[in-house]
Design a binder for these strands. Structure first.
Lengths: 334, 334
DNA sequence: GCGGTCATTGTTAACGTTAACGTAACGACA
DNA sequence: TGTCGTTACGTTAACGTTAACAATGACCGC
């Protein structure tokens, strides 16, 4: 019924050349006469020819596809990263195949990686900033280009990361500089490296300032859990400054504070993390730490392409510093 | 240096069978002795063999990959959809290749589709609910399974859509039922079908109730634009009920209202759309319309697989009804 | 004019899989 | 006993591309 899609040989026949010449034109090889090139290109457009990437992949052993392993791409961070990465990859001529994982157990991560490998992806990006992702990476063939984003800093794997520790410092110092005696912290899930880094930066800064270090309030990334922590904090009178591990948590905290009649920033100051697009319209507008996802995505692609061109290299690292965005949720204590 | 990855023939040699038998085992064909199957499977695990999908794609002419064309996957809706779709596809044995587009002009949409076609994807999902996406689809080969999500209802293309009109009705009727004389609407971008549908449902419901129909306030999807519209609305005393086309807009409106000292829901009621995870922690918690993205994703996959199995069919349609989630942002007018 | 480089093209053989067909062994049944 | 179907394999030929090598002719220096 439907006709076979035109192949190289059809183009070749129409242009009156060999299929190899068509291949050369397609791949931009030198040593093709301008006139021939034009004839071939004309034939290509006339037939509506589209090269078959599968055949190319088969013979070269490498596809022009990059695999992404991502955990819960509904969160703002991963979603932004994924989107930015996809755009950058497309510009470099690569397609992106995503493998989402709903939870972070090792088997599901391994399964996704296996799927990518079966497709002979040229490289893999792992956006799964949890311990178990690192473990899954251990039992992988070592000859495939791979980059982890926000992965385990202790593992010998190429890594691009936003400087979580610096982010924690930025937020905490800002609150301290505003005059607060200490800063409370609502943290993300314990098994995320992001959480650990932000806690480290927070604690370190408090320590350096000789401030008392309150217990960490452990949450997940959701506004709901932020709200629960916020209720406790709202009932504790000595709390005047809170740093939350992301903006959703901050929203929950803000909500709890509002419910308890503790005004922000007059009575309590809050700093978040992520600079979600909505953050400027929280009540009050949220001071927050802004990671540069575009830069992280570009860096990941760079490290990946470097390995694709020059061979796997486990020593590659890149750290992207976040910046502080000051808005209205921070003020001196009364 | 690095050894060639094991191929079927290596497995065959080790198991003492022909490569075709290995293929049969892999594809679960009948007529393979149990004993042979086990020998082959043992050889597969011993060698760490992974079938080469590219070769399979080449010979069968269809890859086990589904292409997605998505517009701005940073928005909650598209991101949720993408994630849900990816999970469903994986379960059905398909990989998903995403092609993000930053803006909605026709050439960039076409480019992404072309890329998918070059990879011989088995089917394409277009999540680009704008006019220009539909246009781009027109000049495509008609023999490839394709599904549009929230696409143009007037176009003869398989379509899965959340019932935007019904959503608009739900929100508007809820506000009317609370006793408001009429409902103002802050709309999404004009070229999105989502916007059009929600406007239609809103207008229709007002009309049916004999309520006055205020002018539409046109925004984009951002809280920032919601804020700008909110400022106008806050200054207009007769405004007591607002339906915004998504939750981010609602947040901006809420913010503006708060700034102008107009209390929600005491003076003004607000209903959003999307039920973003944060919506329950807005101030006040937002009453909103919740589309079921999981169901939309599953339906899209269904329609796609149906076409892959049984041939392209332009008449397939599926509509998913949203539900109203009532929280605290709606009250009777004073 | 002769060997040698270089630009331009063609020929052939892979790559790893599935589809189509071939074949041997074994029963069932006339 | 011969025929036929069924089970369980094996053989061969694609699929569409690139890589390696070959071939042709032009041009250049001497």
């Amino acid at each position: 019924m439907t006709v076979r899609a035109p192949a190289m040989r059809d183009v070749a026949r129409l242009a009156g050349v060999s299929h190899q010449t068509v291949s050369r034109v397609l791949n931009g090889h030198p040593h093709v006469r301008e006139q021939t090139r034009l004839r071939v290109q004309a034939a290509i457009t006339e037939l509506g020819y589209r090269p078959n990437r599968a055949a190319r992949t088969l013979v070269t052993g490498r596809s022009q596809v990059l695999g992404v392993v991502a955990l819960n791409t509904t969160l703002y961070g991963p979603a932004s990263l994924l989107s930015a990465f996809e755009l950058a990859a497309a510009e470099a001529g690569f397609a992106v195949s995503v493998g989402s994982v709903r939870n972070l157990d090792r088997t599901s991560i391994t399964a996704v990686v296996e799927r990518h490998l079966a497709h002979r992806v040229a490289g893999i990006v792992v956006i799964a900033p949890v311990e178990s992702a690192g473990e899954a990476l251990e039992c992988l063939p070592t000859d495939i280009p791979l980059v982890t984003v926000d992965g385990d800093p202790r593992r010998p794997v190429p890594l691009v990361t936003i400087d979580q520790v610096e982010g924690g410092r930025l937020a905490t110092r800002h609150l301290l500089d505003a005059g607060h005696r200490t800063v409370w912290h609502v943290s993300g899930p314990a098994d995320w490296f992001d959480s650990a880094g932000r806690i480290a930066g927070w604690r370190e800064t408090l320590q350096a300032a000789g401030a008392e270090i309150p217990p960490v309030l452990q949450a997940d990334w959701s506004a709901a859990s932020g709200y629960r922590c916020g209720q406790m904090l709202a009932r504790t009178p000595e709390v005047t400054a809170i740093f939350t591990a992301n903006d959703d948590l901050a929203l929950g905290v803000l909500h709890a504070l509002h419910e308890h009649g503790r005004r922000v920033p007059d009575e309590v100051s809050v700093v978040g993390f992520d600079d979600v697009p909505d953050a400027a319209y929280f009540i009050p507008p949220l001071t927050t730490v802004r990671p540069d996802f575009d830069t992280v995505a570009e860096a990941s692609l760079d490290l990946l392409l470097a390995q694709i061109d020059a061979g796997v290299d486990h020593t590659l690292r890149r750290t992207v510093s976040p910046t502080l965005v000051t808005r209205d949720s921070v003020a001196p204590p009364r």
